[in-house]
Amino acid sequence: MPNRMKLTVSHAPFWHTGSSTSVKYYHIIGAAMLAVLFGLYQYGIPALAVLTMSVGSAMLWESLFNYLAKRPNTIQDGNAALIGLLFAMLLPAVTPWWVVVTGTFVAIVIGKQIYGGLGANPFNPVIVAYAMLLISWPVYLDFNAALVDYNFAFDPFYPMAAAKFQGAEMVEHFTISGMLMGQQVGGIGTGFGLGLIIGGAYLIARGFVRWEITISFLAGIFVTALLYNMSNPEVYAGPGFHLFSGMSLIGAIFLATEDSSSPVNFVPMLIYGALGGILTVLIRNIGVHVDGVIFAVLIISLVNPIVDKIRPKAKRRVMNYA
């Protein structure tokens, strides 16, 4: 008499850590919240408008593309929302809505979906979008110009521009503690250094972000800035300034660490991160752009596939199929 009970049958292993892609993305979104809330406090309603527009449109593009490509809808995994959120965090609070929507289109469709969606993108979609806008409409991303109408309790200069065009002397207006507490003009979510650091520490502790990349990125910035500063303190700002201003922190914690466009092996992660930090300072100090993070991350993603080939030799006891 055969037994009719229906047991669950599947392949080993029968345990799982319980981790998942959506758990990861929602945690990253959560960890970004301190910096985002500070941005809302600092820039008010316009920042809220940019944030909602960005997150909303990113999710909409994702749904729309999935629909057109006849793929299952993936907005519930949180990745599109995360892309929208990070993108908005980089923008000035007064960015026109159509710039935001164009940006999220570039991020979701050109940065992610046309490669096949989650996990297949060679670059961080947020970086792709921002770089595209930086080249196409630099004027809307100029923080000094964009934020003239605000009255801040601190010097309303975009620190990156200040350092670049007015030299190290100007940099003295920015103290490290001030920058950590958000006393710098910039993107909605890039200014509050302390908030970013707390969020980053949480993500690293939980294993959602690879510390190797974050730490080596920051180390790259530190060392390179220090060398420049020592060579000519009149012209080049010190490492503290470079670490806590502009997009350094958000870059090291949230942008360079995007899974698909970064390495997974130990040594490659260190090389990738350090190279990103070095390039960031090089671009800031001698390049044409005021901040270097975006293009630095773009370049290291380009070398990622090559760097990640440096991996430990597999341990193989017997050759079977060679």
Partner: peptide, 23 residues
């Protein structure tokens, strides 16, 4: 006791085999 939808594994949780029937 087992009921519908449960899993019975022969071997360990990482490399075992799940079986179809309590027979």
């Amino acid at each position: 006791t087992v009921k519908d939808g449960d899993r019975i594994i022969f071997g360990g949780p990482m490399t075992g085999v799940s079986i179809y029937s309590i027979d």
